[in-house]
Design a protein around this nucleic acid. Structure first.
Lengths: 208, 208
DNA sequence: ATTATCTATAGATCTATAGATAATGC
DNA sequence: ATTATCTATAGATCTATAGATAATGC
């Protein structure tokens, strides 16, 4: 990849720059989240964004740069709900709020969830370094907090890491497997999911 | 797609036919489960299987036919653990055994799990009819069984459908997000997963 | 005789670039 | 003057087929 204008952030971008970059990223999120990096084409992004292919490559130097930009943006959003978990809060409530935030994200940002799932399914070729640098220490930190709560008898003891995996998987499932749920689901999915998951994790963690 | 020899099952296939079809399907499972249908190429399948591209198209009339064959095979394997749930068995044990079988499948058939996840992420373009015809009635049936158990006080009451979603998501997560777990996991993942999930669902469903 | 494999390539699609032209901002 | 867009196309990659040749099974 060569050095291009879009990679030199010194110059402040014009209004059109900003707007068109946003249009491209929004279209690319649609396409990449559905087909993954390899399965996505500039043609699809062009069609969805309404910009010609060469024009897209005027704003981003390569297909991969669009993908990387999306993943970088995603990383922050993605870690946020866990960062907000407060070691000084009421333990059970902190966990349940975390579950709630993750479920809200699945409902409100399903494309982002699927973009992430696609990247991990493909072996996390572009995300792995990020995960090692940002996610791993965060998980370590929060698991230690949870372990502490359990040691103090404020939560029923269980495996904090696998607790976290189960929170991720149960909530993200509603976004990632939406196509399946559309076929087999009967109820107002997210409303039921909310009370079900609350019930599930309360039963697991309630110390009494 | 034109009618070809490989689509007329009347003639019994030779030993070489069978062996090469298996080699192709095995290689294709690797490739499709990692990149999805669009992202996978015959070149990759050719490299992995050791057969030339034209030779692959001698055994399968098109790339899509390979994919469809894999999905058809998967469907049976996929529904099996749920089919085995016995309405005459001891309720909690039946559920926990189901969880166990699903977790075993994630461990032993991670590529199949990822093939499925990829297909659903992409909107289930080829799987949707199967799901409607085979999965939906099966889920309806087993959820009715579970509801019955709950009505009889043999299981603590909760939402059977979302219970099922959470069993699917927590178990499949260990296969589908393996790349992430490889980065952040510290323990013998599957052994810990087994006891954690047993604990999680016992707490939820134990009627006492 | 039939089955399996190879070489060569058609034709479509895909990423990316070159270079001309139009639109915009000082 | 600079920024944005368009036309045209190079060059790589991809699916699929044609047609020749080799291997195998009666």
């Amino acid at each position: 990849m060569t050095i291009t204008q879009s990679m030199t952030p010194e110059k402040k971008p014009s209004r059109i720059q900003l707007r068109n970059r946003l249009r491209i990223l929004d279209a690319a999120l649609d396409v990449f989240s559905q087909h993954g990096f390899r399965g996505a084409t500039l043609d699809q992004i062009s069609r969805e964004s309404g910009l010609s292919k060469p024009n897209i490559l005027y704003y981003f130097s390569a297909k991969e740069e669009i993908h990387i930009t999306l993943l970088n943006q995603l990383m922050e959003t993605w870690l946020d709900p866990l960062i907000e978990m407060d070691s000084n809060g009421e333990p059970l409530e902190e966990i349940l709020n975390y579950v709630q935030r993750k479920l809200d994200m699945a409902r409100e940002l399903p494309r982002e969830s699927r973009l992430f799932a696609n990247e991990i399914l493909q072996g996390a070729p572009r995300m792995a370094p990020h995960l090692k640098r940002d996610l791993l220490p965060l998980v370590d930190e929060k698991c230690a907090v949870i372990q502490n709560w359990m040691d103090q008898g404020k939560l029923a003891p269980t495996n904090p890491r696998h607790l976290m995996y189960s929170i991720w998987s149960t909530t993200q499932h509603y976004a990632d497997f939406e196509a399946q749920l559309n076929i087999i689901s009967t109820d107002n999915t997210y409303a039921e999911a909310q009370s079900y998951l609350r019930h599930l994790f309360t039963n697991l963690l309630n110390p009494t």
